[in-house]
């Protein structure tokens, strides 16, 4: 089955909003766990992936300039990724639409993994 990377994108405000109150944080976490569990049970979750810290450095350009903080020029930051198996891009996007990241205005970037044998 084709593989897809889900990149979970969130703004700082949305990130804080998700843990705006203890009960909110609890509900949000339960939703995420339930969502992953469901994907797993239906056989779509190849690898749950990893969370990414919001701190970081960007190294780039011919001079290898190092910039602090993730990506100051973009509003939203990738907070983690998962590897999904789905029939095609449409189905993968359909699966992503249930992701709790969207509750606070975040988004899922769905990217097909390019394979040699395709």
């Amino acid at each position: 089955m084709p593989e897809f990377i889900f990149l979970y994108r969130n703004t700082q405000e949305a990130r804080r909003e998700m843990s705006g109150s203890p009960e909110r944080a609890q509900q949000s976490m339960q939703k995420w766990r339930a969502w992953f569990k469901d994907l797993g049970e239906r056989g779509y979750l190849k690898n749950v992936g990893q969370p990414l810290d919001h701190a970081g450095k960007v190294v780039g350009g011919t001079k290898k300039t190092v910039t602090d903080g993730p990506y100051s020029e973009t509003k939203d930051v990738v907070g983690g990724f998962s590897i999904i198996e789905a029939k095609d891009l449409d189905q993968a996007a359909q699966l992503a639409s249930g992701c709790p990241v969207t509750d606070a205005g975040g988004s899922v970037e769905v990217r097909p993994v390019m394979r040699l044998d395709m």
């Binding site: 843990s19 944080a25 976490m29 992936g49 969370p51």
Partner: peptide, 17 residues
């Protein structure tokens, strides 16, 4: 406290509680 909750949320949702 909120910051600790943010970090918990982001880590636990992937790795479990």
């Amino acid at each position: 406290v909120q910051d600790a909750f943010c970090r918990a949320l982001e880590t636990w949702k992937f790795h479990g509680v």
